[in-house]
Each structure stands twice: as structure tokens, then as C-alpha cells.
Amino acid sequence: MATQQTRALGKLAVAPSVFALFVWMIVPLAMTIYFSFLRYNLLDPNIACSLMHPGQLFDAENRCLAGFSNYTYFLTDPAFFKAMGNSLILVGWVLGISVAGGTLLALLLDQAFYGRGFVRIMMIAPFLVMPTVSALVWKNMMMNPVSGFLAYLFKLVGLQPIDWFAHAPMTAVVIMVAWQWVPFATLILLTSLQSLDEEQKEAAEMDGTPPLSYFWYIVLPHLIRPMTVVILIETIFLLNVFAEIYVTGTGGRAGNLPFLVYQYGLISNDIGGASAGGIIAVILANIVAFFLMRMIGKNLEA
């Protein structure tokens, strides 16, 4: 479809993006890998070295090499397992809630009713709210154990209000994040539902297909592709949730991997340790990405 000339131009045209993304990916990663093998503290670069045995190796900037100690330290830190668990819980629950909830809501919104446009924009709105705002609004106005709106509702029906951030921080974070992502899933699935051939619907009606079979044999297969899109995109963002945890101060108990690395680096100033953590996060993300891409690849090709 194209001549060599256009193809040559094409190479030229992709060059800037490829170059930019390559640098963006490689330079920080290489540096992170390098730092992860250093005993490197921002506040006092040499503090750790003084504890080292004679014969210690140094790099050009006089920072001492640490071998794999940062990795062993990070991987044996109980906080690491906690953080990884939290990451998984967060991604798993929010994905589950948004695919299931999104499907139900999409089916509802696909019906004929008054004020569809308005309801739709109300449903999309949470996705447009910046994470820091969502975090603060939920933490205070919604989930405050004394005067939050949920506390009011609980009391209204005679229940003891929950102190979410003290007793169920993870649940609180999951609710907050799911609130933002269910609308996204709903919208994608709804768009896809609306593209379901009207004639297919009518044919099913003529055949007298019961609603459940109709859903199972016609609607669900149609939704598989958009569902994989939802899963792909949400996983990318959910693995990297940060602001909600940072702002609500739930990092101690509901902190995920990104938060832990942040803590190592910019709070404890332990660059070596944070870098090792970062690399571990990258490796884990790549494992997830590998499986995800295979799954998605299969579905998107079809």
C-alpha cells in the first residue's frame, strides 16, 4: 500500500516517538538498576560505608557498592510482603467489582429510560475527579466515623458506624478506587452493548430466546473483547495507585508497592533500597504484563 519513499518517511515520522519513549524507558531504568546495587543514602552518602568491612568497593562518585544486599533487605522486609499483598488485593477487588458492576450497570443503562444522557454523565463523573480530591472527599465527608455521611446512614438504620481508616483501611481504599473505575468499565461495556446489532436482538426476540440465554449466548460473548480492554487498562492504572494512599495517610496499613518504594526513597532517603524495590516492582509488573498481553493479544486479534 505504500512506496519505499513513504515507508522511509514513515520511519522518519515514528522516530521521534520511538526515541523519546526509548529514552524514557531505558535511562531511568538503567539508573535505577545501577542505584539498586549501591549503598546510597541521600542525606549522607557515606554513612553506610563506614560500617563496611575493609576492601569495600566504591564507584566513581565514591559511593560504596552493595551487591545484592539492597534486594535481600527489601525482599526480607515484612513490609514488602504486606505491600505486595495490598497491591494484589487492590487490583483484584477493583477489577472484580468494576467488571461485574460495570456489566450490570451497562445492561441497565442500555434499556430505554428518561434522561439517559444525564444519568450517563452522572455515572462518568467519578472518573473525572482527580485522585487526591476523591481521596479527601471519601476520607472526610463520606467516611469520617463521627460526622461522615456513611456514619450518618449507619446510625440511621441503627448500626454502629465504622471507623474505616482505623479498622478497615484496605476496604476503604478499595471502595474509593472502585468508585472511580466502575464508571469507566460501565462506559466501555455500554458503548459495546450499544453496538450490538439491533437485528440480532430482534432475531433473538423472534426466536423467543429467554433473557438469560440471550445474555449468556449473545451478549456475553460480545462483551468479552471490551472486558479485556477494561482489564488491560485498569490493571495498568491500578497497579500504580498512589495518590489515594498517600493523601489518606493509609500507607502504613494499606500501602501498596508504589507507596513502599516512595517511602524508602523520599521519606527514608534510602536510594539504594528504593531502587531495588522499584526494580522488583518493574519485574512484577512485567510478569503481569506478559500474561495480560497474551490474553489481550488473543482477544484483540480475533
Binding site: 531504568l29 535505577t32 495498568i236 509488573a285
Partner: peptide, 13 residues
Amino acid sequence: STKMMPPVGALIP
């Protein structure tokens, strides 16, 4: 796939 790269991997550098 560059989107898959967790930002924390690049934060420090």
C-alpha cells in the same frame, strides 16, 4: 508496554 512500567521504577533517577 511502556505504560506497564511502574512509575516507581523511574521515580528515584
